[in-house]
Design a protein around this nucleic acid. Structure first.
Ligand SMILES: Nc1nc2c(ncn2[C@H]2C[C@H](O)[C@@H](COP(=O)(O)OP(=O)(O)OP(=O)(O)O)O2)c(=O)[nH]1
Ligand SMILES: [Mg+2]
Ligand SMILES: [Mg+2]
Length: 405
DNA sequence: GCCGTTTTCGGCCCGACTGTTTTCAGTCG
């Protein structure tokens, strides 16, 4: 496969996302907004350089690129800019779009505040909330004001994504706490955690239960939960003490498969699967797969069933990103994922001879436990004495010991 | 703005929760 320079793909994707946001603020059709977002998402996963695609006249063959967007792409490739974007930028203050990074503050409210009070930055917004001046705007009352201040505090805290292992630790802690109380039948970690993304925004947990209220009550009253963000009959969002948001969804046991498929995502993957369903006269939600006409439920117990209903094999969560896995699945071309048991050995390990933790014996035992065929001992040498590097004599001694093991 | 193993026009994924509103828009998952 051809791999060219793809920096321009990402730069253009960023511009299309920005155009989508600006169109949203201008109250343009949500479908037009989504067209820009889809084009941007396609560019991010495109393996060929967009300039190369343009050069061979293939722009409009790309999914999500039609007549208009092809013109924008060409304009960007020739001039490095997009006129329409520049024009839209001029209509809002320079820092206006950062307002949309505040949780719960969307394009409509941001625009309203700019129109009515000239809110052009987070700082100005905070001031107006503190002085309660913001309450002069029709449709904004005390609660909204409070929520904006909370949102600004989180925005200030800054961390937007968390490394997978740290998030997994939180997920496991919450999961066992939920199981320890009653009402939980099945529990699965879903979302980007289940898809094994390197970083995640939050922890998504799916539970099946015949007593949803009980499970939701359990989560909201855990000692490790510091704030209840939203709470209803089927789902609840809370903040965990370490700052991570935890989203819990509760459905009845018969909807397990459909709910897990929904809650695992990704969003773009879900949209694609649901589009396939529509073409077959079906509709998919977290409650199941339904015939559009009769409303009859045709699947939902397992993920397998859900995918089968749209003519697809089960797709591993790690691949559910709408980056080609759906076409691959349709053509029976899903890759076989590499699993941990395929690792045959490790060519880089330190021992307590330098700065490692394990003794030689323990290192070898650990390697054998994992079924490794080989392990390389690569302790520091005398060139790095700070890290306990081995002298020539020590190295000879270590080699001796290895031979005896 | 894009798109079509029914369509070149009329759809576009689908649903929960909140605050503010007298019936729903906005935001988020
Ligand atoms: N059908 C549908 N499903 C959605 C939509 N938004 C979110 N979901 C589903 C798929 C997501 O994986 C799942 C959890 O949402 P999140 O916002 O937590 O995203 P996700 O966990 O994928 O990534 P992140 O939390 O950002 O690391 O909910 C949507 O607009 N439509
Ligand atoms: Mg998530
Ligand atoms: Mg979530």
């Amino acid at each position: 496969m051809y791999h060219g320079r793809r920096v321009q793909n990402f730069e253009l994707a960023r511009l299309f996302y920005e155009m989508a946001t600006l169109l949203e603020v201008r109250n343009e059709s949500v479908f037009r907004v989504r067209a820009y977002q889809r084009a941007a998402q396609m560019l991010e996963s495109l393996t060929e350089d967009i300039a190369a695609v343009a050069a061979r006249g293939g722009l409009q063959k790309l999914p999500g690129i039609g007549k208009d967007l092809a013109v924008r792409v060409e304009e960007f490739l020739h001039t490095g800019r997009i006129d329409q974007l520049e024009a839209m930028r001029r209509d809002v203050p320079p820092r206006f779009l950062t307002l949309l990074e505040i949780r719960g503050l969307g394009p409509r409210t941001a625009k309203l505040l700019w129109d009515r009070l000239g809110v052009d930055s987070v700082e100005r917004l905070e001031e107006l909330c503190r002085t309660k001046e913001i309450l002069n705007v029709a449709g904004i009352r005390e609660k909204t004001c409070e929520n904006i201040l909370k949102g600004i505090a989180i925005w200030r805290a800054g961390r937007t994504r968390t490394l997978l292992p740290a998030a997994r630790a939180v997920a496991e802690q919450v999961a066992s706490a939920l199981r320890a109380h009653g009402g939980v039948e099945r529990l699965e970690v879903a979302g980007s955690l289940r898809r094994m993304r390197e970083t995640v925004k939050d922890v998504d947990i799916l539970v099946t239960s015949t007593e949803p209220a009980r499970v939701i009550e359990t989560l909201t009253s855990l000692p490790s939960v510091t704030e209840v963000i939203a709470r209803g009959d089927t789902k609840v969002s809370v903040r965990h003490q370490d700052g991570l948001q935890v989203d819990l969804r509760v459905v009845e046991p018969s909807a397990f498969g459909a709910a897990l498929q929904y809650f695992t995502g990704s969003k773009d993957h879900n949209v694609r699967v649901r589009e396939l369903a529509k073409r077959r006269g079906l509709t998919i939600s977290e409650y199941g797969v339904f015939e559009e006409k009769s409303g009859r439920r045709v699947a939902g117990e397992t993920e397998d069933e859900v995918y089968a209903a749209v003519g697809l094999p089960w797709i591993p969560p790690e691949l559910r990103e709408n980056t080609g896995e759906i076409d691959a699945a349709r053509n029976g071309g899903l890759p076989e994922l590499i699993t941990a048991d395929r690792i045959r050995g490790d060519l880089h390990a330190h021992t307590d001879w330098s700065d490692g933790h394990l003794s030689l014996e323990k290192l070898v035992t650990a390697a054998e436990d994992r079924g490794y065929e080989y392990i390389a001992v690569s302790d520091h040498s005398r060139s790095d004495t700070i890290a306990g590097g081995l002298s020539i004599d020590e190295l000879r001694a270590q080699i001796q010991q290895i031979r005896q093991l």
